[in-house]
Design a protein around this nucleic acid. Structure first.
Lengths: 125, 125
DNA sequence: TAGTAATATAAGTATTTACTAATATAACTG
DNA sequence: CAGTTATATTAGTAAATACTTATATTACTA
């Protein structure tokens, strides 16, 4: 019950004098599918460990195996594996098997994303 | 103590026969400040509520006040305020006071970000 | 085949997060 | 001024998260 601050019949005294919840501008609906897809990408990348993993994969010239990443981010093998798995399902990294090794690489999406982040950071300096 | 799987002197039998943790490519260090800044943005946006707020602010023609956003995302006034506050400190929204109202708008960074997300989603269809 | 290495999965847990309700603050209004 | 409205802040909490350890799986190797 998140009401309790508007018991009277909402005779809104909004800034522009309009009624209901239209104090400013009508707020359009948004695409629910887009939300889900985008938030998956954003939350996958919005964590130090996973972000670092992606940056390291991006920085490497070729695809990278888990063994290397493990020592790089300082958490357990299991933790790295889980992190990579999540990045993979978010579509941020590719994976390829070769013998006992698993090689991870960046997807185009992720590359584009990192570029945007670099852009933003560059303009904010 | 996240070791325990490499007790012997790491006489690595890596894919390319190289030593230490260089099975693939040397993995360069990454910029710690960039990590912090980027993860702040990503994690701020990587949550349904906050993402929706940003999308709605983006979709509105003018700046938006909290009262409108509240009904849009379906959480309490307090929750919205906290979400906006976090988005603000991540540099994703602007805020401006006008009488009792607070108007929120998109920053350039956020706009660029949303564009990239739209791009990515568009190419993945 | 048994043994070992690379990675994944499962189960458990401390920490973090995203809320809610209650209260505070600040500005407008009679 | 007292009352009300818009928003922020605080405190508390259920649920989610990011790990850990232990175990399973898969592939290579002697």
């Amino acid at each position: 019950m998140s009401e309790g601050y508007s018991e009277t019949e909402s005779q809104s005294s909004r800034p522009d004098g309009s009624a209901e919840n239209a104090c400013c501008t009508a707020i359009p609906e948004i695409d629910e599918e887009a939300v889900v897809a985008d938030v998956q990408i954003l939350s996958a990348l919005g964590n130090d460990t996973r972000y670092e993993l992606v940056r390291r994969i991006a920085a490497a010239e070729d695809d990278v195996c888990v063994c290397d990443l493990e020592s790089a981010v300082g958490i357990s093998q299991s933790g790295v594996s889980q992190a990579l798995s999540r990045l993979y399902s978010a579509g941020l990294i590719t994976r390829r098997k070769e013998g006992s090794w698993r090689y991870y690489g960046l997807t185009e999406d992720a590359a584009q994303f990192l570029d945007t982040l670099d852009d933003i950071r560059a303009t904010n300096e």
